[in-house]
């Protein structure tokens, strides 16, 4: 409240005039007091006064002269004292002093109250200079009528604060979040190890075969060497064997397709692959084999087989 409606109740203390006997040299340049609005404060309010203090450079504010937080009188309590060193600029040493007061005065009508001035000390090591942060006055306002005109009890208290339950929403959120983490970790583990719905992923022989084919035929445009092409075909056949769980030959293909209907999509290419293998492995005819299934198409076929295996097209 005080901070928001801070109006500048600026009292440029020509504090030098108030000071104890000091030489004409101005050790204290200025004390400016910034205060909240000077009216409309009620019992229990907190007021923050801030004072900008400017000293000449060798002088420093003596922290021991600051008041400590304490009740000042029966209605006024100093609750917080905070000194900020704003550093030096030129030959001026600046301080910001924040004083927080709490008032406990129950006025019957708007009443002017005074916050007393504050005596502080500045020192340069040898000389000590006293100066004053000026006091301040403000109007307090009452909360109630002097004589109640309200129906019913004149001394009706405000109701009790009901005991609140322990808030559990934060714990609940934490529980849900950690359950989510458990689930995520389990999904990652299952995917990685190949449990449950990820069982198909186990091994993924065609994925491995596709990698091996690409490794064996690094330049599909040029005619491949016999061992490389042989190697590529072999790795694809191993993938078929691993997928079917037994050796797959051209005669077994109808059985393979009925067991793994996904592969029907690429049936013609698969048949060409088996034809090429027959040429190469049994006829030892690399040229005929590469005519049947050129290396580029072999790589493309490996990619499609991998996609079918993954459950794609």
């Amino acid at each position: 409240m005080h901070a928001a409606a801070r109006s500048l109740a600026l009292i440029l203390a020509m504090a030098l005039l108030l000071l104890a006997p000091i030489p004409a040299g101005a050790q204290l340049r200025s004390v400016e007091l910034y205060a909240p609005r000077p009216f409309g404060h009620v019992i229990g309010d907190r007021l923050t006064l801030s004072a900008d203090i400017v000293l000449d450079v060798p002088f420093q504010l003596d922290p021991a002269s600051l008041p400590r937080a304490r009740p000042l009188n029966y209605w006024l309590e100093l609750t917080d004292v905070r000194l900020t060193d704003r550093g030096t600029s030129g030959d001026a040493q600046r301080y910001a002093l924040n004083l927080t007061y709490q008032i406990f005065y129950a006025p019957l009508e708007p009443k002017r109250l005074d916050i007393p001035p504050l005596q502080l000390l500045a020192t340069d090591g040898e000389r000590r200079v006293e100066f004053v942060v000026p006091g301040w006055s403000f109007l307090t306002s009452p909360l109630r009528e002097i004589v109640s005109t309200e129906q019913g009890a004149a001394m009706a208290l405000r109701p009790d604060a009901p005991p609140p339950p322990i808030p559990v929403s934060g714990t609940l959120r934490g529980l849900l979040f950690s359950l989510g983490c458990v689930l995520a970790a389990l999904v990652v583990l299952a995917w990685h190890v190949g449990w449950g719905p990820f069982a198909q992923r186990r091994g993924r022989p065609f994925a491995r075969a596709a990698r091996a084919v690409r490794a064996a035929l690094p330049s599909p445009k040029t005619a491949p060497s016999s061992p490389a092409y042989r190697q590529a075909l072999l790795s694809l056949h191993r993938a078929f064997d691993a997928t079917a769980g037994k050796g797959v030959f051209a005669e077994d293909l109808p059985g393979f397709f009925s067991a793994h209907p996904g592969f029907v999509l690429v049936e013609t290419e698969i048949r060409r692959l088996f034809a090429a293998s027959r040429r190469l492995f049994f006829g030892d005819d690399l040229v005929a084999a590469t005519q049947e299934l050129p290396p580029a198409e072999l790589i493309a076929l490996a990619g499609r087989l991998k996609a079918v295996e993954r459950g794609g097209r």
């Binding site: 409240m1 009620v42 019992i43 229990g44 309010d45 907190r46 709490q102 406990f104 129950a106 009452p142 909360l143 109630r144 001394m155 208290l157 405000r158 109701p159 604060a161």
Partner: peptide
């Protein structure tokens, strides 16, 4: 310091 019910009852 913003506890209005406490202010009111303290006033009483």
């Amino acid at each position: 310091p913003g506890f209005w019910d406490a202010k009111y009852n303290l006033d009483i």
